[in-house]
């Protein structure tokens, strides 16, 4: 079978590149707020409770419910973290947009409650989801920090 001529290879490559560029440009225009290369989206605070009295020993966190986000090249995880008296009382995955199965991180909210930290154990074979989840929880905790 005859090989494709070089000029056809160049022409077809250019056509493919043009269609790719059109798609890339369209998505870039539509989603300028999306960040790539493993950077984080800006944190969102959904609600905050009132600060405790002045005569008490200052706590590390301000009581309330916070929304944190962790993202990387494989998608994004959003969590809501409830804090009361410096304790993480509830963690929920409010949005899971990774390109992997949610089953990989389904037990992690429970783990955060047990260890009272965002540093969950890395699940072998689910590194990207684990990192995104951990980052999301840490993002929420950072917002709750008393400055």
């Amino acid at each position: 079978m005859a090989k494709m001529k070089k000029k056809w290879v160049a022409l077809c490559s250019t056509a493919v590149a043009a269609v790719y560029a059109a798609g890339y440009w369209s998505t870039e225009v539509d989603k300028p707020e999306m960040l790539v290369n493993g950077t984080y989206s800006s944190p969102i605070v959904s609600s905050k409770a009132s600060v405790s009295g002045n005569d008490e020993v200052p706590s590390k966190y301000i009581d309330g419910t916070y929304t944190g986000m962790g993202s990387n090249r494989r998608g994004m995880i959003q969590v809501t973290v409830a804090i009361k008296n410096d304790q993480i009382t509830d963690v929920e995955i409010s949005d899971f947009a990774m390109h992997y199965s949610i089953d990989d991180v389904i037990g992690m909210p429970e783990e955060v409650l047990q260890i009272q930290s965002a540093k969950v154990a890395n699940v072998s074979g689910a590194t990207y989801s684990t990192i995104a989840f951990s980052d999301a929880v840490q993002d929420a905790l950072n917002q709750a920090l008393r400055t």
């Binding site: 790719y20 798609g23 890339y24 369209s26 998505t27 539509d30 989603k31 999306m34 790539v36 090249r73 494989r74 998608g75 390109h99």
Partner: peptide, 10 residues
């Protein structure tokens, strides 16, 4: 999700 499909790692 067209955005991801045209960018690394996809």
């Amino acid at each position: 999700d067209a955005f991801d499909a045209l960018r690394p790692p996809f």
